[in-house]
Simulated scan of single mutants.
Amino acid sequence: MQRPGKNKWIYLISPLLSLVFMLFFISPSFIHAETSMQGYKEVFQDHPILPFFNKGERTNNENSDKQYQDLEDVRIIPGGQSIGVQLETKGVLVVGHHKVKESEGTKSPGEAAKINVGDTIVEINGQKINHMTDIKPIVDHSGKENKALQVKLKRGDKFMETNLQPVFDKKEKAYKIGLYIRDTAAGIGTMTFYEPKSGKYGALGHVISDMDTKKPIDIKQGSIIHSSVTSIEKGDNGLPGEKQASFQTQEKRIGNITKNTDFGIFGKLEKGVNHEKYEESFPVALSHEVKEGPAKILTVVDGEKIEEFEVEIISSVPQKSASTKGMVIQITDPRLLEVTGGIVQGMSGSPIIQNDKIIGAVTHVFVNDPTSGYGVHIEWMLEDADIIEPDNDNEVAA
Rank of each mutant, 00 (worst) to 15 (best):
F21H: 04
L23S: 11
F24Q: 12
F24E: 11
F24R: 13
F25L: 13
P28K: 06
F30A: 10
S36Y: 00
S36P: 03
S36G: 09
M37R: 15
M37V: 09
M37I: 06
Q38T: 09
Q38D: 11
G39R: 06
K41D: 08
K41M: 11
E42D: 10
F44S: 13
Q45E: 15
H47K: 10
P48D: 03
L50W: 02
P51N: 04
P51D: 03
N54C: 01
K55S: 09
K55P: 03
G56H: 05
G56I: 02
E57T: 11
T59N: 11
N63K: 14
S64K: 04
S64I: 09
D65Y: 10
D65A: 12
Y68Q: 14
Y68E: 14
Q69R: 14
L71W: 04
V74R: 08
I77A: 02
P78N: 10
G79W: 04
G80R: 05
G80K: 02
Q81S: 12
V85G: 00
Q86W: 09
E88C: 05
K90D: 13
V92Q: 01
V92S: 02
V95S: 07
H97A: 08
H97Y: 12
H97V: 03
V100R: 04
K101Y: 12
S103Q: 13
G105N: 00
S108C: 02
P109C: 00
P109A: 03
G110L: 06
E111I: 00
K114N: 11
K114H: 13
I115S: 05
I115F: 06
I115Y: 05
N116F: 12
N116I: 07
V117K: 13
V117H: 07
G118K: 04
I121Y: 01
V122M: 07
E123C: 02
E123G: 04
E123H: 07
I124E: 00
N125E: 12
G126M: 09
G126D: 05
G126N: 06
K128I: 13
K128Q: 14
K128W: 07
K128G: 07
I129S: 08
N130Y: 11
T133S: 15
I135D: 02
I135P: 01
I138T: 02
V139S: 06
H141C: 03
H141D: 14
E145A: 15
K147Y: 07
L149T: 00
G156V: 07
